[in-house]
């Protein structure tokens, strides 16, 4: 079996994996990082989104062997020493979730979006999150939360 080395949420892991193992199953079943959800069988919903080498990806559509040598951040690695990331805070304060199933993927896709565009308009947030489906919120508060977080991150950066 191929052996892979992956850095996940700041910890280096080396494991033997079956080639057909999906990254999302590696994260959930092997590393116990069940914060990353699986919501579909068609690569559409984005619930499984993680950030891999700086870019948002759907971890259900990446083989664990393809992630060999990569740096992966999941929702579980986002908080800094127990302090929530601005996106986590904003999703809470802006009420950007109801059942919460889509939230880990929404937040990780937003991390990717804000890395690319630190100050997106409503329209740009909607476009940036077009790969993530939410069946509860109607998206309005998700857009608000991403913009609130962007503003906070901007303030933090210029202070």
């Amino acid at each position: 079996m191929p052996r892979i080395s992956v850095n996940v949420d700041g910890t280096a892991f080396t494991d033997e994996v079956e080639p057909r193992l999906l990254l999302v199953h590696y994260l959930r079943d092997r590393l116990g990082k069940t914060g990353t959800n699986i919501g579909c069988d068609t690569s559409n919903c984005g619930a499984c989104t993680v950030v891999m080498d700086g870019l948002s990806v759907k971890s259900c559509t990446v083989l664990a062997v393809q992630a060999d040598g990569s740096d992966v951040t999941t929702i579980e690695g986002l908080a800094d020493d127990g302090r929530w990331h601005p996106l986590q805070k904003a999703f809470h304060t802006e009420h950007a979730l109801q059942c919460g199933y889509c939230t880990p993927g929404m937040i990780m896709a937003s991390v990717g979006l804000l890395a690319d565009n630190p100050d997106p308009s409503d329209e740009e947030v909607r476009e940036g999150l077009e790969g993530n489906l939410c069946r509860c919120t109607g998206y309005q508060n998700i857009v608000k939360a991403v913009r609130t977080a962007a503003a906070e991150m901007h303030e933090g950066a210029t202070r």
Partner: peptide, 9 residues
Amino acid sequence: VGDPQVRHR
């Protein structure tokens, strides 16, 4: 094409 995650891969 698709969405940002799809375009990243």
